Computed example of a mutant assay.
Amino acid sequence: MPSISSVPQGYTAVTPSTTTAAKAPGVATDALGNPVRVPKQTLDKDAFLQLLVTQMRYQDPSSPMDTTQMMAQTSQLTTVEQLTALVTSSQAAFASQQQLSSAALVGRQVAWTDPVTEVTGSGAVSAVRFTADGPLLRVGDADVPLSSVTGVTAPAAS
């Protein structure tokens, strides 16, 4: 790195200590604090589109890409977008269905088994709490995940 005295007049020397790297998604810093790009672990429609554009940019002008190939790749991009939208809407529908199903269990008797400790229990569902991991049923003093319920019966007659 040039010394500060060798920097032309009117310019400021930039050193690692005088620069700041903005924290952007997918960007980390190395041991010196320099920004380092962290690659994505999955391919999405943006990555697919980037590959297609790069392929077109660097194609040989004397033998351009076949239009049939171009149309096939474009339709694949459309398919990837539609599948992504379908997965997103399916996940939302499943979450809504879980919430409705668990809310319908309030007041009912449930049996449950903890998959880790293999402890079993039963009791009336008094409340439902919705979390990022799924619905939790309040049974007595325990919070029971909906996935641990092994049986449901009608509420006891009073």
Rank of each mutant, 00 (worst) to 15 (best):
M1D: 02
P2T: 04
S3L: 03
S3C: 02
V7W: 02
V7P: 01
P8A: 05
P8S: 04
Q9F: 15
G10Q: 10
G10N: 14
T12Y: 12
T12R: 09
S17Q: 10
S17V: 00
T18R: 02
T19H: 02
T20N: 07
A22M: 01
P25T: 15
P25F: 13
P25D: 13
D30G: 09
A31Y: 05
A31P: 00
L32V: 00
N34Q: 11
P35I: 11
V36C: 03
V36Y: 06
V36G: 02
R37P: 07
R37H: 09
R37A: 13
P39A: 10
Q41F: 10
T42Y: 13
D44S: 06
K45Q: 14
K45S: 13
D46R: 07
F48I: 08
L49T: 09
L51C: 07
L52D: 05
L52R: 08
V53M: 14
M56S: 08
R57S: 15
Y58G: 14
Y58F: 12
Q59K: 07
D60M: 06
P61K: 08
S63E: 08
P64C: 15
P64L: 07
M65P: 06
M65V: 13
D66A: 09
T67F: 14
Q69G: 09
M70L: 15
M70D: 06
M71K: 13
A72D: 06
A72V: 07
Q73G: 09
Q73T: 12
T74F: 14
T74A: 07
L77Q: 11
T79F: 14
V80T: 08
V80E: 09
Q82S: 14
Q82R: 11
T84R: 12
A85Q: 10
L86F: 15
L86H: 10
V87Q: 13
V87E: 13
V87M: 11
T88Y: 14
T88M: 05
S89E: 13
S90A: 14
S90R: 12
A92I: 10
A93Y: 13
A95E: 06
S96H: 11
Q97D: 13
Q99L: 03
Q99C: 02
A103E: 14
A103N: 08
A104L: 11
A104E: 14
V106F: 08
G107I: 03
R108I: 03
R108A: 06
R108Y: 15
Q109R: 08
V110L: 04
V110Q: 01
A111F: 12
A111Y: 12
T113V: 04
T113W: 00
D114T: 02
P115G: 00
P115Y: 03
P115A: 00
V116W: 09
T117E: 03
E118Y: 12
V119H: 04
V119G: 02
G121D: 02
G123D: 01
A124D: 10
S126L: 12
S126T: 15
A127Y: 15
V128M: 01
R129N: 12
R129V: 15
T131A: 04
A132L: 14
D133Y: 05
L137F: 03
L137E: 00
R138F: 09
A142F: 02
D143N: 11
P145F: 03
P145A: 04
L146V: 01
L146I: 07
S147Y: 01
V149C: 04
T150C: 00
T150K: 04
G151P: 03
V152E: 08
T153M: 05
A156G: 08
A157N: 11
A157W: 02
S158I: 07
